[in-house]
């Protein structure tokens, strides 16, 4: 077990194993997203209340799922980095932060687009949208903090601490925003509190969610691999790989 973790911590070993894993996740991601998109947009039945506009959930819900999971993953990677000093964990955390921020933005944007036919406005201070907006600010804070340090080691540790602080706060923020919203509730119509969905509706949604997760893993592997090459550029195996030695 420990030998496995130590191996996983070695950039070279990770670089090799991820080369073999990566294509599978790309194929899975593309296939699932393609199937889910076609099924969700073309074949799933229209909602009896919202008509076709509900189909935005096939992008919105997976993006929102990812937005939250990526932050948690980032914090877990931060803990692994701080406790066991495994550099790969930090590289992955650094590489997934922009994707998480992008997914949060996608969730916010698709929520706003969905708001036009449903609420008649682009933006409502809906509890979910507000929490998502705060999550976006948290992501931007982590990215900005990492960029502010001149020394990479300090940047990594500072970003890890902030991600951990953020992940403790996310549930607190979420529940206080929910509570605030029920106090000032302007509309009683939220994106996911709907009557139980028929199978033809949620099955493509499930496929999309799994597809988005595979996409996240594939992108993170790809970006982490290039980050390994960048950070380990002076190591012998990287120079051999690049053909630059001798």
């Amino acid at each position: 077990m420990w030998a496995f973790i130590h191996k996983l911590g070695s950039p070279k070993w990770f670089y090799d194993i991820s080369a073999r894993l990566q294509p599978w996740f790309w194929v899975l991601a593309l296939a699932l997203i393609a199937v889910g998109t076609v099924w969700g947009l073309a074949f799933a039945p229209a909602d009896y209340q919202q008509g076709n506009s509900f189909r935005i959930i096939y992008v919105h819900v997976p993006a929102a799922f990812l937005a939250q999971s990526i932050f948690v993953t980032m914090a877990v990677a931060g803990v692994i980095f701080m406790v066991w000093k495994i550099k790969i964990a930090d590289m992955a955390a650094a590489m997934m932060a922009p994707l998480g921020a992008a997914m949060t933005f996608v969730a916010l944007f698709s929520g706003a687009v969905w708001g036009v036919p449903t609420w008649g406005t682009w933006w409502m201070w809906d509890a979910r949208l507000t929490s998502m907006l705060i999550l976006l600010f948290l992501y931007l804070g982590v990215i900005a903090l990492r960029g502010a340090f001149a020394s990479r080691d300090s940047a990594s540790r500072a970003a890890s601490v902030l991600a951990m602080v953020g992940v403790i706060n996310i549930p607190i923020i979420k529940y206080s925003v929910d509570w605030w919203y029920t106090l000032h509730q302007p509309a009683s119509f939220t994106l996911t509190e709907r009557p139980a969905m028929p199978t033809e509706m949620w099955l493509p949604l499930l496929i999309m969610v799994v597809g988005f997760y595979c996409f996240f893993i594939a992108v993170t592997l790809l970006r982490t691999r290039s980050e390994i090459l960048r950070r380990e550029a002076n190591k012998r195996w990287v120079r051999e790989l690049a053909g630059g030695i001798r």
Partner: peptide
């Protein structure tokens, strides 16, 4: 401020 303000919301 960027780091701290989101955490102040609750």
């Amino acid at each position: 401020s960027l780091l701290v303000l989101p955490l102040y919301i609750p």
